[in-house]
Computed example of a mutant assay.
Amino acid sequence: METKDRNLYRLDELSDYKIASNYSDVRGWKIVDADNRTIGTIDNLWVNKDMQRVVYLDVKVDKKLIEDSHNEVHDAIAYDNGKEFVYKDGDSHIIIPIGSVNINKDTKIVMANGIGYDTFRNTSRYNSQYNFGRDYERNVMKSYYPADETAFNDDDFYNRREFENR
């Protein structure tokens, strides 16, 4: 994705941004599905600079989940500068909309709401060394919310409950 068109940044790229005092810094916390199965660890947060808020959790997927999906065919894939790249071993991250989780400050565990282990297992992953484009975001959202496919147009993409930090 070209920098001039970019509106999503990892929090650690933005030296002038920090997490508001009334929110938890969930980086390093475990994330589980609704059945308490481990999905992975939150590696970073994706910030929409236009909206000035976190919209995605960047999750380093648990090795077991990757092994469970090793033989699955993924309709791939992440994009970098508009070019597709092949699903590789280094593709070990997924994004999860911030409004799709509950954060438990006491246990320091994040739980995905209504997204099951098999969905995460079959969701296309990306390599954290690269940025992803809107096509990857759409593919992920279609994976998580297949019945809501028509609501992923560019004009109001982030104006959805899945991106509300509750």
Rank of each mutant, 00 (worst) to 15 (best):
residue 23 Y to G: 07
residue 85 F to P: 00
residue 160 R to Y: 04
residue 146 P to Y: 09
residue 14 L to G: 11
residue 56 Y to P: 05
residue 11 L to W: 05
residue 110 V to I: 13
residue 162 E to V: 11
residue 108 K to R: 15
residue 81 N to G: 14
residue 124 S to T: 05
residue 8 L to P: 11
residue 133 G to L: 01
residue 15 S to M: 06
residue 161 R to K: 10
residue 18 K to S: 11
residue 107 T to A: 15
residue 82 G to H: 10
residue 93 H to E: 13
residue 48 N to Q: 06
residue 136 Y to L: 09
residue 123 T to C: 06
residue 159 N to P: 04
residue 93 H to R: 15
residue 126 Y to F: 12
residue 23 Y to R: 15
residue 151 A to R: 11
residue 37 R to Y: 12
residue 53 R to A: 02
residue 94 I to K: 04
residue 78 A to G: 15
residue 64 K to N: 10
residue 28 G to W: 09
residue 118 D to H: 10
residue 88 K to D: 14
residue 65 L to G: 05
residue 54 V to A: 03
residue 144 Y to F: 15
residue 140 V to I: 11
residue 19 I to K: 13
residue 111 M to A: 13
residue 149 E to N: 14
residue 34 A to C: 01
residue 72 E to W: 03
residue 56 Y to K: 08
residue 73 V to W: 06
residue 165 N to S: 05
residue 156 D to A: 09
residue 98 I to S: 13
residue 9 Y to V: 07
residue 63 K to M: 01
residue 40 G to R: 09
residue 103 I to S: 07
residue 120 F to M: 00
residue 14 L to I: 12
residue 2 E to K: 12
residue 30 K to M: 12
residue 30 K to I: 14
residue 30 K to T: 15
residue 37 R to E: 13
residue 162 E to R: 02
residue 152 F to A: 00
residue 50 D to V: 01
residue 35 D to A: 09
residue 123 T to N: 02
residue 102 N to P: 00
residue 104 N to R: 09
residue 107 T to N: 13
residue 9 Y to T: 11
residue 155 D to P: 00
residue 116 G to F: 08
residue 12 D to T: 10
residue 95 I to Q: 03
residue 101 V to S: 10
residue 166 R to C: 05
residue 147 A to S: 14
residue 153 N to D: 13
residue 135 D to L: 07
residue 23 Y to C: 12
residue 40 G to C: 03
residue 66 I to E: 08
residue 160 R to F: 03
residue 3 T to K: 04
residue 160 R to I: 02
residue 153 N to F: 10
residue 46 W to H: 06
residue 158 Y to C: 03
residue 3 T to E: 06
residue 17 Y to E: 11
residue 117 Y to W: 09
residue 71 N to I: 04
residue 142 K to W: 03
residue 34 A to G: 01
residue 49 K to G: 01
residue 62 D to M: 00
residue 9 Y to R: 11
residue 53 R to P: 05
residue 17 Y to N: 10
residue 68 D to P: 03
residue 130 Y to A: 02
residue 89 D to N: 08
residue 152 F to R: 01
residue 47 V to H: 10
residue 65 L to W: 07
residue 42 I to P: 14
residue 24 S to I: 06
residue 33 D to T: 02
residue 129 Q to N: 13
residue 79 Y to R: 09
residue 72 E to Y: 06
residue 94 I to S: 04
residue 35 D to W: 00
residue 159 N to W: 07
residue 28 G to F: 09
residue 63 K to I: 02
residue 97 P to C: 05
residue 67 E to I: 11
residue 11 L to P: 12
residue 30 K to L: 12
residue 23 Y to Q: 15
